[in-house]
Simulated scan of single mutants.
Amino acid sequence: MAQQRHRFLLSSLAVGTAIAAVAIGILAASTGKTWPHEATPTAAMPQGWSYPFSCCSGMDCREVPDKAIVEGARGYEIRATRELIPMSDTRIKQSPDGHFHWCSVAGADDGRTICLFVPPRSF
């Protein structure tokens, strides 16, 4: 009796896991959303790109509008936090798609910067 119950629970768990996996796959395909660590596809990068693990733990990074970051002689200012990131700071990364991407602790709009992806500087 106990063995039959154990088999039933295992088979129920397997069926539930399979249904969840299919549902997640359908949801991901239908929404066009990216997975954690991934930047949204753009014209420059139609397949999107992945944020480095050192910058993003699945919720820390996102694309931000150009007006959210101010480039000045002393570095990049994050407007939301007034944080100044010097140009020589190792948190500054080259943006593969030409857009600003900001990685902050827990993805908070008032969080400390982990990484800042910047577009190529124009001369």
Rank of each mutant, 00 (worst) to 15 (best):
R74A: 15
T90F: 05
A20R: 13
P119N: 04
V118S: 00
A108Q: 12
V15C: 15
R121L: 03
A29N: 10
E77S: 10
A18F: 08
I19E: 08
Q94C: 07
T81L: 03
A20Y: 12
V22I: 06
C61F: 00
S54M: 11
Q94T: 14
G75P: 04
G111N: 04
D110F: 11
L27C: 09
V64K: 02
C61E: 00
P86A: 02
C56T: 02
A44K: 10
R7M: 12
A68D: 13
E38I: 05
A28N: 13
M59A: 15
G25V: 08
W35D: 08
D60N: 04
T113G: 01
S11V: 09
W102G: 04
W49H: 05
H37R: 11
G58K: 06
C55F: 02
Y51I: 01
A108R: 13
P46N: 07
F100P: 06
F123W: 09
T31H: 07
S50M: 14
R121C: 01
E38S: 11
M87D: 14
P119Y: 06
I26F: 06
I78E: 09
H37L: 11
H101R: 01
L84V: 05
P41N: 03
G98S: 05
D97F: 01
R62V: 01
T42N: 04
G32H: 03
G72A: 05
G72R: 05
T81C: 05
G111Y: 02
D109E: 12
L10S: 05
